[in-house]
């Protein structure tokens, strides 16, 4: 038992270093992805055909191809055509673009779910479209977006592990390295899974707390 204990003690601090990176990537990517989701979700509903079409192309392109393929494409091909980005930039940008494309569907769905009467009430009060959007639609659509965005956040934590494949020393990267160098394969992978679970679970709890505060209560009740 002594040896088990000491190996854990030896491994954990190094894994936690990686975990900090994983959390950092997640927290850096999430707002960018959310912003992209909002922009693309709104663009798809635009009355300017070119804007809506551009959004469709973006969303279908990133939803239709695999995240890992996108990551390798950005990592290996972009430098060849003269775009030099650091692995971090490449990783965060690709994750954000990928999750933004999925998120845009959440945004679109939530906006379309706001009852039509709310928009009409705003129009007969002579609000310009931008105000209808900002002051009537978005405040009512946001609570409906929270639960699916929460799920996406957990998916994002998991997806950050792919960045270990483009040389970023996140939790997965550190774990794989430790498994090879220490030979403590079982121990390392079990610890890896536990730490990922802890991160994801913490975020889930945080999102649930948010939902409780800003939850759907205030809006959905009135389909009238």
């Amino acid at each position: 038992m002594e040896t088990l204990f000491t190996t854990v003690i030896a491994l954990v601090p190094r894994l936690l270093d990686g975990a900090v990176t994983t959390v950092a990537i997640t927290l850096l990517t999430a707002p960018v992805a959310a912003l992209l989701a909002l922009i693309a979700g709104l663009a798809r509903l635009s009355h300017v055909k070119a804007v809506a079409a551009a959004a469709v192309v973006y969303v279908e392109l990133f939803r239709g191809t695999s995240l890992l393929v996108q990551l390798f494409f950005m990592f290996y091909v972009l430098p060849l055509i003269g775009i030099e980005l650091s692995p971090w930039t490449t990783g965060v940008a690709t994750l954000a673009l990928n999750f933004g494309s999925y998120g845009s569907e959440i945004v679109r769905g939530a906006l379309l779910a706001v009852p039509r009467g709310q928009i009409e009430a705003a129009l007969v009060l002579h609000m310009p479209p931008s105000q209808v959007l900002r002051r009537v639609l978005l405040p009512q659509a946001l609570p409906a977006m929270l639960p699916p965005f929460g799920n996406q956040l957990v998916e994002l934590v998991k997806a950050t592990s792919l960045l270990s494949l483009i040389t970023i020393s996140d939790l997965a990267f550190v774990g794989n390295a430790l498994a090879q160098t220490t030979g403590r394969v079982t121990m390392v992978y079990v610890l890896l899974l536990l730490i990922y679970f802890a991160i994801a679970y913490t975020l889930t709890l945080a999102v649930r707390a948010l939902e409780r505060r800003y939850g759907t209560g205030a809006t959905v009740a009135g389909a009238r």
């Binding site: 009467g117 709310q118 009409e120 009060l125 002579h126 009512q140 205030a218 009135g222 009238r224």
Partner: peptide, 23 residues
């Protein structure tokens, strides 16, 4: 409207002052 269409995320007062302030 027949179905009122009050803004669900605003109080009664906020519903009334929304357009006077912002329009």
């Amino acid at each position: 409207f027949q179905h009122f269409n009050l803004f669900q995320h605003l109080t009664a007062l906020e519903n009334v002052i929304e357009a006077p302030i912002h329009v």
